[in-house]
Design a binder for these strands. Structure first.
Length: 834
RNA sequence: GCCGGCGUGGCGAAAUGGCAGACGCGACAGACUCAAAAUCUGUUUACCGCAAGGUAGUGGGGGUUCAAGUCCCUUCGCCGGCACCA
């Protein structure tokens, strides 16, 4: 079906007093392209720089998550960018300076895979994809300031990643440490988590093992506490905050140490120090230094550690079999002095807490399972409704009879000297492993000097550029090691011949500050000018996919705090308000190439135009819910609505005549104008504070229905009609901007509707002459009365009790009370049997 | 297992404690048409009733309130996140 292409003139059957019938001229496809060109040419959406504004200039920063340039946009992008655009256009019409722009998260694996498969350079592949996607996005008519566009793979961008790295190095926020990577022996290469399926390389099927490697880290855990606390002040969906809290995983407890017979102390972390008298073993991670050392002289233990070490993280996490190995070591209980066996166990993680736990089988399920398996004593030391809760201590020496809470404090105090006991916070959040053994990313700006060790580059030698002479084979060490020009470098400190670092940065670094670069994307001397950050940040509204709830949104918050501490960003948090949109599905499934269920936005635009697609996307479902793309029925409805708008306005001849005094309007006219201004009021609220977009569209549809029902017949009908359409078109403009521009001109205005002021509400019109009062008797609606809007509550009560519909329900009953709640739209009558 | 969210017509949904189902899709009927498309008009939660109207109804059960889809308790189902976190 071609809804909007070459439509024929409908048989005119409008209640509308049409004075002329012109052939329909609006062709969305043609018009959309034309108006987009004009917006572009006249830089209609240019955002100003800080120096062009005063501190009093109202601004709005509308940010959407920047896409990875895969080559084609999908419906999720359409939804995301349309939502952002509706807000951006609205805020612009409200008179604010709006920052709204687009960029490309353009480093990462897919480009490198393309290079391996098709022997095409990642830069060429990426540039083409950006060009293709940009064209598609532009067809949607999103009001971006394209002059601020950026791409993270450009040296002009990533040199600042390197610069930040150096600043963080200076501050001690960067460190090197060993961490396991997915190592594929057959390929001789490191693989990303998503490349590993069932412990094998997803492409070749070669086995993958865990192997420790020296890597760079950002010390994000330094900010763990602030990252949790900061969530309080944010206007974010509760579920996202909960996900972040859980991800950061703050846990309050105590640390204490157990002394081995040899004198070595083992530190454990526990949230239940009150169960100390129930300890019957210590369990240590196989990677724990004490275990590693013991394994030197204990071949059985060594082989146990090896078996566990071979397991992938996945295997280790999914098997709930508790494996342990009893060592020859024993520790002394810090209170009782009893000897306690020490186990190496697979369920204890080296990277959480201290890598060692005290086993209390009486009050911990895991410890219990372990104790049953290895026949260890199970002692009850707490009396409580269930064994897993705090309660009152028993069998605990001097501490018996104390509550768990009191005992915990007492124990920490008592053991402070003898067992190093202290309160301690532990986090699940790990330091941010930065290194990727990849080509297509920001080179880490360090060199390995035989004299000085690992040395940071100097700022004046930035950027460290990615070399071009690279072999992409998919095997062997990082591609950067194959460059002849890249590796050799003079040590920045001593000048001796050194070797460049060949690891590149995680692409999350790129997306951790891009919204600041947008503000000053052409700056060649700074990442961005602090004045710009001051003028525009924090971001007023950030919209993106829920899949970024933890990683990106935690890294970005962390980075922002670091920039704040570097004196570059002034706010504590980068994104004041966040909305996570739901996915766009097809028949209940995520659209994907492999399922062959992709709906291409271009096809839809070809058939219905961008406005219809935009309108449908907004209307179909609340923003945070999933949309199932069931077919084209929904979008045909959207196209039909736009066509109806166009057709209803078409016969109108523009007039300069102003709206007559409200007192001279007919009741019908007043009713229509009330509806108009009520809709305006409601839509403003939807756009400004409720961020309820689907209802925005239904309000407009309702309004159009009212307009269509109205007979414009009074002497000043033209002026009324002009007033109505002038407002209507502006209300439509954020959602269907192309058609609105056409209609705005059609209504006799010059300039873009995108720049027209959002209409102001006439308060007198928000109240109607008559209001509907609902009468309830014992909670059931029994009558609907139309009363003058200035009726007093008493008058309403009287009218309610008197009216014929209500009378029968009062017969033979005793009136208990009558309530008119604030707002006066309801009279609630309570009666009881006489 | 833990945490979070959601359950409303045939479907997408609305309802900021105050008329449940706005708005749209689909379906059905009618007008226009030689016909179709498009457009316009009307009907569309269930049950009872010729009708006026009545009764029930927002996953199930209970509660608070003059009033509950909305708040509280409980239970079932679905979705999402995390998952040996000491």
């Amino acid at each position: 079906m071609r809804v909007l292409r070459r439509p024929r003139r409908p048989s005119v059957n409008l209640k509308w007093s049409s004075r002329h019938v012109s052939p329909m001229t609006y062709d969305p496809l043609q018009h959309e392209v034309n108006i987009q060109e004009r917006w572009m040419k006249e830089k209609a959406f240019r955002a100003p720089f800080a120096k062009e504004m005063t501190p009093a200039t109202p601004t709005f920063y509308m940010l959407v998550m920047l896409p990875y340039p895969s080559g084609r946009i999908h419906m999720g992008h359409v939804r995301n960018y349309t939502l952002g655009d509706v807000v951006a256009r609205f805020q612009r019409m409200r008179g604010k300076k709006v920052m709204h722009t687009m960029g490309w998260d353009s480093f990462g694996l897919p480009a490198e895979n393309a290079a391996i498969q098709h022997q095409i350079h990642p830069a060429i592949w990426t540039r083409k994809n950006i060009a293709d996607m940009k064209k598609q996005i532009q067809r949607l008519g999103i009001s971006y300031d394209w002059d601020r566009e950026l791409a993270s793979f450009e040296p002009a961008y990533y040199r600042w990643n390197q610069w930040f790295f150096l600043q963080m190095w200076k501050r001690g926020d960067v460190f090197r440490a060993l961490r396991n990577v997915n190592w594929c022996e057959a390929l001789g290469t490191v693989l990303a988590n998503e490349q590993v399926v069932d412990g094998k390389d997803e492409r070749t099927g070669h086995p993958v093992v865990q192997k420790p490697m020296e890597q760079y880290f950002f010390a994000i855990t330094k900010y763990a506490d602030e990252l949790i606390e900061g969530l309080e002040s944010l206007d974010w969906p509760e579920n996202i905050k909960a996900m972040q809290r859980h991800w950061i995983g703050r846990s309050a407890g105590a640390r204490l140490s157990f002394e081995l017979i040899s004198g070595v102390r083992i530190s454990v972390f526990t949230t239940r120090i009150d169960t100390l008298f129930g300890v019957s073993f210590l369990a240590l991670s196989t990677e724990h230094p004490v275990i590693q050392e013991a394994a030197q002289s204990d071949p059985d233990l060594a082989s146990f550690c090896q078996t566990i070490g071979k397991q992938s993280r996945e295997e280790r996490l999914t098997s709930d079999v508790k494996l342990g190995h009893r060592t020859r070591l024993q520790a002394r209980h810090p209170m009782t002095g009893d000897l306690i066996p020490i186990f190496a166990a697979n369920y204890v993680l080296m990277d959480y807490g201290t890598g060692a736990v005290m086993g209390v089988p009486g009050h911990d399920e895991r410890d219990e399972a372990f104790a049953l398996k290895y026949q260890l004593p199970i002692v009850t030391v707490i009396e409580a409704p269930t064994r897993w809760e705090p309660g009152v201590l028993i069998h605990s020496g001097d501490f018996s009879g104390m509550t768990s809470e009191a005992a915990s404090h007492a124990l920490v105090k008592a053991l402070a000297q003898t067992a190093d006991a202290e309160w301690m916070l532990t986090f699940k959040l790990k330091d941010w492993g930065l290194s990727r053994q990849r080509y297509w990313g920001t080179p880490i700006p360090t060199v390995h000097c035989p004299q000085c060790g690992v040395v940071p580059e100097t700022e004046d030698r930035l950027p460290v550029l990615l070399p071009e002479d690279i072999q992409f084979s998919g095997r062997g060490a990082s591609p950067l090691t194959t460059s002849t020009t890249f590796l050799q470098v003079a040590c920045p400190e001593c000048g001796t011949e050194a070797r460049r670092e060949t690891d590149t940065m995680d692409t999350f670094v790129d997306s951790s500050w891009y919204w600041l670069r947008y503000l000053d994307s052409k700056n060649t001397t700074q990442a961005f000018h602090p004045d710009e950050a001051k003028a525009w940040t924090p971001v007023d509204l950030y919209i993106g996919g829920v899949e970024h709830a933890t990683m990106h949104l935690i890294y970005a918050r962390y980075f922002h705090k670091v920039l704040r501490d570097l004196g570059m960003a002034h706010a504590d948090e980068p994104f004041q308000r966040l909305i996570c949109q739901g996915m766009v599905l097809k028949d209940g499934f995520k659209m994907s190439k492999s399922k062959g269920n992709i709906v291409d936005p271009d096809d839809v635009i070809e058939r219905y135009g961008a406005d219809a697609l935009r309108l449908f996307m907004i209307f179909a479902s609340p923003i945070e819910k999933e949309i199932d793309w069931t077919g084209f029925e929904g979008i045909e409805g959207a196209a039909r609505f736009l066509k109806r708008v166009e057709r209803l306005i078409d016969p109108h001849t523009p007039t300069q005549a102003s709206l007559p005094l409200l007192s001279r309007l007919s009741p019908e006219e007043k009713k229509l104008l009330s509806k108009l201004h009520q809709t305006l009021h409601r839509m403003t609220d939807d756009l400004e504070s409720r961020y309820s977009f689907n209802t925005l569209v239904s309000s407009l549809m309702e309004l159009l229905n009212s307009i269509q029902e109205h007979t414009f017949s009074s002497p000043h009908a033209d002026a009324v009609r002009q007033h109505v359409w002038d407002i209507f078109v502006r209300l439509l403009a954020p959602t269907a901007p192309h058609l609105s521009e056409y209609l705005w001109t059609r209504l006799g205005h010059s300039g873009f509707v995108a720049h027209a002021p959002w209409p102001s509400c006439i308060p007198e019109l928000l109240v109607t002459d008559e209001i509907l009062v609902v009468v309830q008797v014992n909670g059931k609606v029994r009558a609907r009365l139309t009363l003058p809007s200035d009726s007093t509550d008493t008058a309403k009560q009287e009218a309610a009790l008197r009216c014929a519909e209500v009378q029968p329900w009062l017969q033979g009953k005793t009136l208990v009370k009558v309530i008119v709640p604030p707002g006066g739209k309801i009279v609630s009558v309570v009666v009881k049997d006489a």
